[in-house]
C-alpha cells in the first residue's frame, strides 16, 4: 500500500468516527448505511472491472445470493446471522467459480452478455422458487445482527458497523492491488496475451478476482438483509447491476477510491435531489417528482461527457490543468 492510501484510509476513519456526532438524524445515517453497502459492492466490482478489466453486468445476483442466504437461513431456519453470512459468502464464491470458469473465457461484449444473463436467471429464480425464497412476497422477519452481544438495531450502531466493514474491505482490496497479484491483474487489463507470455496465469487470476468481487457483493447483501429486516426480489434486478456498474464508472474504475467516490455520490444524489425538491416546494415553486429523474440523468450525462475517466481521474486532470495555468500565470508575472 502506498502512503496516499494510508492517508485516505485515515481520513475516512476519522470522518466515520466523528460523523454521527455531527449528524444525529437517523434518516441521514440510514442513507449513509445504504451508501456503505453500495461502496462495499463497488470495491469488489472495481477490482474486477478496473484492475482485471472484466465486465460484470450481473453483480446484483451476488448481492441477492448474500441477502437471500441470510434471509432464508436466519428467518426460516433460525441460524445465527454470522453463520448465515459466512454460508452466503461460500455460496457466492462457489457460484462465481461455476459461472466464471466458462464465462471468463469470453471477452468484451460476450462476457457482459453472459453475466447479464446470469443476473437475469438469478432474479427469475428468486421470483419463481416460491417455496424457498417466498417468491414476490419475499422473506419476512430477518433478525438484526449481533456484534459481541450488542444488537445492531439502531441506525448509529449499524452506521459504525457497515462503514467499519467498508474500511476492512478497502484495506484488503488495497493490499491486494499492491501485491504481486494486483500487478498481475493490471497486466491482464493492459494486454491479456502479454500478461500470459510473462508468466501470469490469466485464467486463474480472472476467476479468482471474480470470486473475490462476488464475496464483497455477498457480504453487502447479507448486511442489507440484516439492516432492512425484509427482502424481496425487487432490489436485486438487472437494473441494480447496471446501477452498480454506473457507480464504478462515474467514480473512475481505475482506482478503488474512484469506486468509493462513485458509490457515495450516486447513493446520495437521489436523496439530495429529493431534498432539493422539498426546498423548492417550501419556496412555493412547483416541482414534480419526475424532475428528479431528469436531473439525475442530466448529471450522469454531463459527468460522462466531460469526465469520461470518472470523477477521481477527472478531478486529477482538472487539477493538472489548473496547476499548469497557475504556473504559466506566475511565469508571466516573473518575466
Amino acid at each position: 500500500m502506498r502512503h496516499k492510501d494510508y492517508m485516505g484510509l485515515g481520513i475516512l476513519l476519522l470522518v466515520i468516527i466523528f460523523l454521527p456526532f455531527v449528524i444525529t438524524n437517523d434518516y441521514y445515517l440510514g442513507v449513509l448505511v445504504f451508501t456503505a453497502l453500495n461502496c462495499l459492492t463497488c470495491i469488489g466490482l472495481c477490482l474486477l472491472m478496473g484492475y482485471a478489466g472484466q465486465i460484470s453486468l450481473g453483480h446484483a445476483a451476488f448481492y441477492a445470493l448474500g441477502a437471500y442466504a441470510t434471509g432464508i437461513l436466519t428467518a426460516k431456519l433460525g441460524w445465527s446471522s454470522w453463520m448465515a453470512m459466512g454460508t452466503g459468502v461460500i455460496i457466492s464464491a462457489g457460484v462465481a467459480f461455476l459461472v466464471g470458469v466458462p464465462s471468463l473465457r469470453l471477452k468484451g461484449h460476450y462476457l457482459a452478455m453472459a453475466t447479464l444473463g446470469f443476473g437475469a436467471i438469478i432474479h427469475i429464480v428468486l421470483i419463481a422458487a416460491v417455496n424457498m425464497t417466498g417468491g414476490p412476497s419475499g422473506v419476512v422477519g430477518i433478525p438484526s445482527l449481533h456484534f459481541f452481544g450488542i444488537e445492531l438495531n439502531t441506525d448509529t450502531r449499524f452506521f459504525y458497523f457497515s462503514w467499519s466493514t467498508v474500511i476492512i474491505g478497502l484495506l484488503l482490496a488495497l493490499n491486494l492491488i499492491h501485491s504481486r497479484v494486483g500487478r498481475g491483474l493490471r497486466a491482464i487489463h493492459g494486454s491479456e496475451d502479454a500478461a500470459g507470455s510473462s508468466g501470469v496465469n490469466t485464467s486463474v487470476y480472472k476467476i479468482k478476482v471474480f470470486m473475490v468481487s462476488a464475496v464483497y457483493a455477498s457480504v453487502a447483501g447479507s448486511l442489507y438483509a440484516n439492516y432492512v429486516n425484509y427482502i424481496d426480489p425487487g432490489p436485486f434486478d438487472v437494473m441494480h447491476s447496471v446501477l452498480l456498474l454506473t457507480m464504478v464508472a462515474v467514480g473512475g474504475m481505475h482506482t478503488i477510491w474512484g469506486a468509493i467516490t462513485g458509490a457515495t455520490v450516486l447513493s446520495l444524489l437521489p436523496e439530495f435531489l429529493s431534498s432539493m425538491s422539498d426546498y423548492f416546494e417550501s419556496l412555493g415553486l412547483s416541482y414534480q417528482p419526475d424532475y428528479d429523474t431528469l436531473i439525475y440523468g442530466g448529471i450522469l450525462l454531463l459527468m460522462m461527457l466531460f469526465l469520461p475517466e470518472g470523477l477521481v481521474d477527472g478531478m486529477n486532470s482538472i487539477r493538472r490543468i489548473t496547476s499548469t495555468m497557475f504556473i504559466r500565470a506566475r511565469k508571466k508575472l516573473v518575466f
Binding site: N25, V31, V228, G234, P235, S274, D278
Partner: peptide, 23 residues
C-alpha cells in the same frame, strides 16, 4: 402533506419513511 416518491423501490421506501419521521 409531505409527499415522497418511492419509485416502487424498497430501499427508497425505507429512506423515505425515515425522512418523514425524523426530518
Amino acid at each position: 402533506l409531505h409527499i415522497e416518491d418511492t419509485q416502487g423501490d424498497n430501499t427508497r421506501a425505507v429512506n423515505a419513511v425515515k425522512k418523514l419521521i425524523k426530518k
